[in-house]
Each structure stands twice: as structure tokens, then as C-alpha cells.
Amino acid sequence: MKQVFVKGPITPDFIATSIAKHQSKYEIGAHNIFLGQVRADEVRNRKVAAIDFTCYEKMANEVLHDIREKAFRTFDLTCLHIYHSIGEIKVGEVCFFVFVSAKHSKDVYEATEYLVNAVKKKAPIFGKELFEDETHQWKVNKTW
């Protein structure tokens, strides 16, 4: 099982290092990256300050394994990486990083869209939206 969950925000350094690691893979001609960032949503005059992510890790790892396998079966990919934050992530910080590499651009675009949607829909990840006034509400993805 590949390690998906990262404690804390996904930093620009982490993303840059991930890109650098692929420079020795000469069969790759196209990379595509999706970054999910915590947004300062406003709900009845309360502004989101952070999201506290938790997950059912045992199930999430299995679901993500299946999602990854399906992506490899469906698209002609060289490699793909999925990272998701756990813990409190402040607005403006990155909590979700999908990185797809292939010979050609068409595959990376289509695979990225599939992966982002599948993770949102199928992975048991939960988000507590923490407001600036210290109240909270639970985030619900539109695909639920």
C-alpha cells in the first residue's frame, strides 16, 4: 500500500520535490497536477479558518488502492501519486495533491479528473470546518 495520508499541510517544497523525483524517468512526456486548497467559505457570517481532516485509514487505503488500479487499467499512465492531508489545515494551505504522469497529455488530463472525483466520492475522509469564532460544522462533498 502506498502512503497517501500526510500529517499537516502539503507544502510547496513537498510538491517541488515530487516533481524533481520524476526528472530521471525519461519515458514521461506529460505531467498533470491537481492541488486542493482550503477555502475561506462563509456560512451565515462565519468564516472558515481551517479544516480538521480525519479518515478511516484502513478502508481509505483499500479504496485508494482500487482507485489507483482502475486508473492504471483505464489510462496509459507511467505513474501516479495521491496525497491527502490529515489534521488541521488552515485556509490557503494545500490539503490534496494528485500527480499524474504519462507519455502524452490526453491521458494525464483524463486520469486526473477521474482520480480527483473518485477520491472525493469514495474515500472515507471527513472534514470538520473550523470557523473563526471557534464554532464548527462538518463538510459534505457534493457527490455524497
Binding site: 481532516f53 478511516y56 484502513k58 490539503c95 474515500a123 472515507p124 475522509i125 457527490t143 455524497w144
Partner: peptide, 12 residues
């Protein structure tokens, strides 16, 4: 067995 009660997912 392990039974889990899961609220709506919120990843991404």
C-alpha cells in the same frame, strides 16, 4: 468483524 458508521465524505 469491524463495522464502521461513516458520515458524508469530505475529502479533496
Amino acid at each position: 468483524d469491524e463495522l464502521a458508521l461513516l458520515p458524508p465524505f469530505a475529502g479533496g
